[in-house]
Design a binder for these strands. Sequence first.
DNA 1: ACCGGCTTGTGAGGGAGGTCACATTCAGCT
DNA 2: AGCTGAATGTGACCTCCCTCACAAGCCGGT
Lengths: 240, 240
Amino acid sequence: MLSPYGLDIIESCLTCKMRVDRIFCDLPTADLQAFETIKYATAYPKGAVLFVEGQAPRGLFVLCKGRVKLSICASDGKTLILKIADPGEVLGLSATVSGKPYELTAETIDPCQVNFVKREDFLRFLKEHGDACFKVAEQLSDKYNTACHEVRSLGLSHSAGEKLAKLLLEWTSKNGEASKQEPRLKLALTHEEIAQMIGTSRETVTRLFADLKKRQIVQAKGSTLLIRNKAALRTIASNG
Amino acid sequence: MLSPYGLDIIESCLTCKMRVDRIFCDLPTADLQAFETIKYATAYPKGAVLFVEGQAPRGLFVLCKGRVKLSICASDGKTLILKIADPGEVLGLSATVSGKPYELTAETIDPCQVNFVKREDFLRFLKEHGDACFKVAEQLSDKYNTACHEVRSLGLSHSAGEKLAKLLLEWTSKNGEASKQEPRLKLALTHEEIAQMIGTSRETVTRLFADLKKRQIVQAKGSTLLIRNKAALRTIASNG
DNA sequence: ACCGGCTTGTGAGGGAGGTCACATTCAGCT
DNA sequence: AGCTGAATGTGACCTCCCTCACAAGCCGGT
């Protein structure tokens, strides 16, 4: 560990390239090579801000390694975390395409490997490569879909408990698809951050977790969380 | 008025075509003509359902005349109205592109003129016409943007009053851009529907309006609403 | 004119959760 | 170890608004 980055860069750029392939997959090799020429491989430390909500779009970011927190922020400082982006995710795509300001703020929560593409370069790339353009439309549809789910969760839930249950279920289905018996998931976020994800207060999250533990629905094992009663969690998530 | 439609159809298809031009504008004439061949001009009465949330995507709908209510619905019947689409809007685009189920339910609230395009036809059209594909990406970015604003409004507001003020401001900025003195807007929705737009109860909306009237911020003139004090409304919208 | 249905207006009660204030525990640092 | 700051746990209070209940207004139909 001579530097925060160092050897890591060399290793991850290989895996990174594979990830890019996965996003713009099915593209002819020519298109892929064109993409390779316009991207800038960069590295960010933990806590770096890729872009800020309201900023004019400079370009897009393909996350190769590490996680990025995507959030919106009210004038009074209250923050809503929309999602934690994992490697493979494309960030700032919508703003880059439309030219409107970034809708979100993107901040690294790990040391990150990122491929940056300038807006002009990307737009030119899209004009010249129709297939890639379709992939972009698909990506945007995906993002829209996620946003709709967010709206549903925020707008149609009756209680904070319901939203927390939904969040936990979402995490379990994303993480341990394999382990069917007792899903476990790493609690990488603080109660404060979870509160910001479901639009509630930190104290409420603490109380909700205490309640879930008392009712034997979840169980804490250090920083991992065991889901003991997934059915009950589902009931909470749908009933309110 | 021999029939609910009748002459209207012939008139509006001309204007309608202009609208389609506006959406896929800048396209070469060849592309436009190709689009004309795959669209089906159709008419719906008030209260018709274009598509339902969760349905497999049959295709997209270009709204030419009339308004369409876009909503999501919880298992308990609680409804959240996301927007009232005006002529020119493309509906079901994201689902058509991604192949995932429609995220929303679309229901006409006027008699409507609509151009329908089948999913397969549209996808083929996109493959063959790269420029149109880019336009689609732009449209999707727009929709994503709107969804983000919805999330912001739902997730970061402290009170129902704040959300109502935001909604009213949004409406005034969309409707009477010209009249700078005292913006007026047609209240085409019931309190119940407004409540569904901001995720609150009907009674709360009634009470909020009563309060705004008492404080001389708005004034009712039949079914039109005068905004007497836009500054105050803005304060409510941002302070909570 | 009368009726029934929808919309709006208003009161009373109660519950969820935000806020404040503090105690406690945990994790990293030297 | 011990110290420090962050994260968690918990109680008390109070506000917003949801719910229920009902009155009043508005409007089209016959």
